[in-house]
């Protein structure tokens, strides 16, 4: 140990936050995003078009909203694989309400409340009964979407009120969509929550050492419960946007999104083992995934093949630094 030889005066910091930032994952990821942007604009003449770019944001805005809450949850050492199923259930609840004559305000409330209830259900099972979140949410993933299937079978809900379409199809100004504004606002809210508040600090502490955090007087179960609640809430909000955008609800809505959300979070530099990661990282990751999907779409690459790139991206960004370390001692 070298610390015994260190000077008695201990500085606050050795590295300025700016110097630390330069060496960070986020900067590397930003470089990747810029490279993809340039590659896209060279590959397709349709890429650098304001409306096309605006359209492209819909590829990630809804998923990114969930990814913000998921990032906090994963940093705390838990995970929620039921998010896409919460969307299905919330969308089904809204669709059922439409059949009973509900208007837009009621639909928004129903979407949000369904999300919160699902999050609370996960939270109670994990923090109240002490069950592992990965299995619990694999279970609720089947359960929540399963309820949608029971209700809808192979049918679909349509006929959403005209005002409801604003959330997924409306534009605030010129090419700036409502969803994009919501995404930006939520990014700021979650960034502040994680990086600037006591709550965020507790999330990091729990993720690094839950026992040590509990022994420091932090109410670990309460913090984790709130995080499940937030993840449910975000899934509910995403359900409103997605349902509004599609204008219909099928039980297969948002199928497989949980994996894309987790990929976005991990790509953003959040450790799947908990304890580290940032919201700016997740924001950049959202853009990277959106750009990749959009660029490949312009080149007429089918969606399923894009998923290969997403999978390679997920493994590659984690494997490459480790390979680098292995071969360069």
């Amino acid at each position: 140990m070298t610390d015994a030889a260190s000077p008695r005066h201990v500085p606050n910091r050795l590295q300025s936050p700016a110097a630390r930032l330069l060496k960070s994952w986020e900067v590397l990821l930003l470089a990747v995003a810029v490279a993809i942007f340039i590659a896209n604009s060279l590959a397709s003449p349709y890429f650098l078009n304001a409306w096309n770019l605006s359209d492209a944001t819909f590829n990630f805005t809804e998923k990114a909203m969930i990814a913000f809450a998921m990032a906090l949850l994963i940093i705390s050492g838990e995970i929620d694989l039921s998010v896409a199923s919460i969307i299905a259930l919330a969308s089904t609840a809204m669709g059922a309400a439409v059949q009973m004559g509900a208007g837009t305000p009621e639909l928004v409330v129903i979407g949000i409340v369904t999300g919160l209830l699902c999050g609370a259900f996960n939270g109670v099972l994990v923090t109240g009964l002490g069950l592992p979140s990965i299995v619990v949410t694999i279970g609720t993933m089947s359960l929540f979407r399963g309820i949608s299937y029971i209700v809808l079978g192979d049918q679909a809900y349509r006929g959403y009120p005209s005002g409801f379409s604003y959330f997924g199809q409306g534009y605030v100004w010129w090419v700036i969509s409502f969803e994009f504004v919501l995404f930006a606002v939520l990014a700021v809210i979650y960034g502040v929550l994680l990086h600037k508040t006591n709550f965020g600090r507790m999330v990091y502490a729990i993720g690094n050492n839950a026992t040590g955090a509990a022994f420091s007087g932090i109410k670990v179960a309460r913090v984790k419960f709130i995080l499940f609640l937030l993840t449910g809430l975000m899934s509910g909000i995403a359900a409103i946007c997605l349902t509004s955008r599609l204008g219909s609800t099928r039980p297969s809505i948002a199928f497989g999104w949980e994996l894309e959300v987790v990929t976005m979070v991990v790509l953003g530099g959040v450790s799947i083992l908990g304890g580290s990661g940032t919201i700016p990282g997740v924001v950049i990751a959202a853009f990277v995934m959106g750009l990749v999907t959009f660029g490949l779409g312009l080149l007429n690459v089918p969606g399923i093949v894009m998923s290969i790139f997403i999978g390679l991206l997920l493994i590659g960004v984690i494997a490459l630094p480790r390979l680098w370390q292995k071969w360069r001692p």
Binding site: V266, S307, I308, G311, L312, L314, I318
Partner: peptide, 20 residues
């Protein structure tokens, strides 16, 4: 060999194999 968490690895290969 790379100590990547299994859930990340198989989440990735799952989409890759399916895409292939």
């Amino acid at each position: 060999k790379l100590s990547i968490p299994p859930i990340v690895v198989t989440l990735g290969t799952m989409t890759i194999y399916r895409g292939l």
